[in-house]
Write a protein that binds this DNA or RNA. Structure first.
Length: 258
DNA sequence: ATGGCGGCTGAGAGCCGA
């Protein structure tokens, strides 16, 4: 039996996050796999010693536009294969996905689009959601076990946001987005945190920088670790590290045993 | 309703985040 510690964290700019908490976090938790979203940098824009975060293997997908989006996956053990997109090249242009393939599962590290800045981005996000589910269904048909982690930019349960009534008109908690999440679960995924902690309330992973939202815990739970059925028996724990500083999001951690 | 905060770009104020 070996333990696998997996972390997902939207750091909102890896260069700014490094000295605000990211580096110390890696020292303290030493995850086997660390999935970062919103690097807001190309790999070569980051100082060499900070580039790897101490990981021998790290894979980046960055946006064409500088300072925007971007994901990176850091691993102690080399994956069998690495990809940076699904069928639609638009998502690679925005650095949305690092897809690593491992012995026991395929891992998708994803920064889901934000749909809150107008109709075009709203539609882009809904398209992304649909196409991702289609892609994952196709992969599952091959018999694969899959982990999807990242900043989903979607909360789906009433108590996953601090004010469900007001926020039901805002991107990230729209009825159609919550419906998408339920369909995603129905397709065969389990939200690991909620599976282990069905009644835990006021657990959030993102707070606005404004209006002292974090200290008042006016947050959203939008960062998730979801797995296919065959992986459920391997889960040992899952927690939202709400006290962790260094970003407007906090990390979510899960431990598996294989 | 608006703007509020912060990272980033490119050298200003503006874009974007959810």
């Amino acid at each position: 039996m070996k333990t696998l510690k997996l972390v997902t964290w939207n750091v909102n700019g890896i260069r700014a996050s490094y000295d605000k908490g990211l580096n110390q976090f890696v020292q303290e938790y030493s995850p086997d796999i660390l999935c970062i979203q919103e690097t807001k940098a190309h790999k070569d824009q980051v100082e060499p010693h900070k580039q790897s975060l101490g990981y021998e293997h790290n894979y980046w997908s960055s946006a064409e536009r500088k300072g925007y989006s971007g994901v990176a996956t850091f691993l102690k053990k080399k994956p069998k294969k690495v990809l940076t997109g699904i069928d639609n090249p638009d998502y690679e242009k925005e650095g949305r996905i690092v897809w690593t393939q491992h012995e026991e599962f395929d891992l998708y590290n994803i920064y889901f689009p934000n749909g809150g800045s107008g109709e075009e981005r709203h539609n882009f996000k809904q398209k992304f959601l649909k196409e991702l589910t289609d892609h994952l269904k196709f992969e599952m048909k091959k018999g694969k076990q899959i982990i999807v982690v990242g900043d989903y930019n979607v909360a789906y349960l009433e108590f996953d946001v601090h004010d469900p009534k007001r926020l039901s008109k805002e991107s990230g908690f729209l009825p159609e987005e919550r419906e998408w999440f339920n369909g995603f679960l129905k397709a065969g995924f389990t939200d690991v945190f909620r599976q282990l902690h069905p009644d835990k309330k006021e657990m959030y992973s993102w707070w606005s920088y404004r209006e002292l939202a974090r200290s008042r815990n006016k947050g959203w739970r939008i960062d998730h670790i979801c797995v296919t059925e065959g992986l459920l028996k391997h889960i040992k724990s899952c927690d939202i590290l709400m006290q962790q500083v260094g970003s407007d999001h906090c990390p979510v951690i899960a431990e598996f045993e294989f």
